[in-house]
């Protein structure tokens, strides 16, 4: 099966371990950020721009990314983001990854639109762990899917040039590659199905031979 989703890759270990996990390895291709070309991107159904990306290098390929969207495809963007890509302003905020111990009734996400296909059927604890910043500006008429208690935007979706961008400051891909949080299959597997129609199965595993590699 041809790989369905391209994961823009900044050489970061958690991006790597996610894409190499046996349950995802046949779905994902790591696209090294310095190898991006329009032709290379065109073979995929969807792209993911993960947390800890080289936003500066990615913005240099803005035209290729917009061309990808113009073919009616989907892009998922997590964590932080470059303002120049999709006309949305991202701002940093302190990361609160301990609220569930110290203040379980006050999660960093107060509102979630569970009618969105990625979120439909998720329990609240599967739709919120911690966030990396907020959006203080999103494209006009973007669909707002998640917000903080004080109304800052965490997740939004917008149709751009005929394609669809889903952006969140959650970090499901990178955090799933880290495996300190063990429930993320719920979110990522619904996300992957929404992106490309393939339903991953099984448990997340690391493969020993993927470490200490020569490239």
């Amino acid at each position: 099966m041809n790989k369905k989703i391209g994961l823009l890759f900044n050489g970061v270990w958690s991006q790597y371990t996610f894409a190499k996990a046996p349950k995802y390895v046949n779905i994902f291709e790591l696209i090294y950020v310095y190898d991006i070309t329009p032709k290379y991107l065109s073979q995929f159904d969807a792209l993911i721009i993960p947390f800890q990306s080289n936003q500066k290098a990615i913005v240099e390929h803005k035209d290729a990314i917009l061309s990808f969207l113009a073919n009616g495809k989907k892009i998922f963007m997590e964590g932080d983001a470059a303002e120049e890509l999709f006309d949305a302003k991202w701002e940093d905020r302190p990361v609160n990854n301990y609220w569930w111990v110290t203040n379980p009734d006050n999660p960093p996400i107060a509102v979630t639109d569970y009618s969105h296909p990625v979120y439909n059927g998720l329990m609240p604890r599967h739709a919120c762990w911690h966030t990396h910043g907020v959006y203080t500006k999103v494209p006009q008429s973007a669909q707002i899917i998640q917000q903080t208690p004080n109304g800052e935007i965490i997740t939004w979706q917008h149709d751009i040039l005929g394609g669809t961008v889903l952006a969140t400051t959650l970090d499901p891909i990178v955090e799933h590659g880290i495996q300190q949080i063990t429930h993320l299959d719920n979110y990522t597997d619904k996300l992957i199905y929404w992106l490309c129609g393939v339903q991953p199965e099984g448990k997340f595993e690391f493969v020993l031979s993927d470490f200490g590699i020569t490239v």
Binding site: T17, F206, F211, G212, T214
Partner: peptide, 13 residues
């Protein structure tokens, strides 16, 4: 995860 550190390898499980 690539083999660039002399004498030492990082692994995760």
């Amino acid at each position: 995860f690539t083999n660039w550190v002399p004498g030492n390898k990082w692994i995760i499980d």
